[in-house]
Simulated scan of single mutants.
Amino acid sequence: MITLNRRNFLVTIPIALTACSAGADELLSREAENPASSSALPLMVVYKTPTCGCCGDWIDHLRGEGFGVRVHDVADTTPMAQRLGVPNTMRSCHTAEIDGYAIEGHVPAREIHRLLTERPEAAGLAVPGMPLGSPGMEMGDRRDAYAVLLFDRSGRIENYAQYPAS
């Protein structure tokens, strides 16, 4: 049983307000699948189109790696990617934001954990396109080689991690 003291009450107010917002039932049920994630890591907010199945698979990958995820289905992710400074050449099918960083495309959770630990001066990470074998794009045994790229708002792009083909 939880005792309602001042601290618990103040924590409850934002939760209650969230529950009143659109889509709260889905958010609460998804966060309940991984309750430790919401306190261990910052919440990741993902913007995707409603019909994208691989985006859902990527979100499942993140949740399996301890991330709490809030999902927003939108008609077009371009405005969010532009707001977060994602270069057009690095675009993919979904855009996410975590702790001030943009995450574009099928970036492995391992690299997001590393980003949050190292905290480089950057706008975010991207896996351009939709390479087979990247998280959410697993289709059989085929795995294309791909790079996870670190980018900043001035246009600087560097290789952050490399994943080989198999």
Rank of each mutant, 00 (worst) to 15 (best):
E26R: 14
L27W: 09
L27S: 14
L28A: 14
L28D: 10
S29G: 06
R30Y: 03
R30S: 13
E31D: 13
E31R: 11
A32W: 05
N34Y: 03
P35Q: 10
S37G: 15
L41D: 10
L41T: 06
M44G: 04
M44K: 01
M44T: 01
V45H: 07
V45Y: 01
Y47M: 07
Y47I: 01
T49Y: 03
P50I: 07
P50M: 12
T51E: 14
C52H: 03
C52L: 03
G53D: 11
G53P: 09
G53V: 05
C54W: 00
C54P: 01
C55F: 05
C55R: 08
C55M: 07
D57I: 02
W58E: 09
W58Q: 08
W58D: 08
I59W: 01
I59Q: 05
I59D: 04
I59S: 04
D60M: 09
H61A: 09
H61E: 09
H61F: 05
R63A: 13
R63P: 07
E65R: 13
F67G: 00
G68A: 15
V69P: 00
R70H: 14
V74Y: 05
D76K: 05
T77C: 14
T77I: 15
T78S: 14
P79A: 12
M80G: 04
A81I: 01
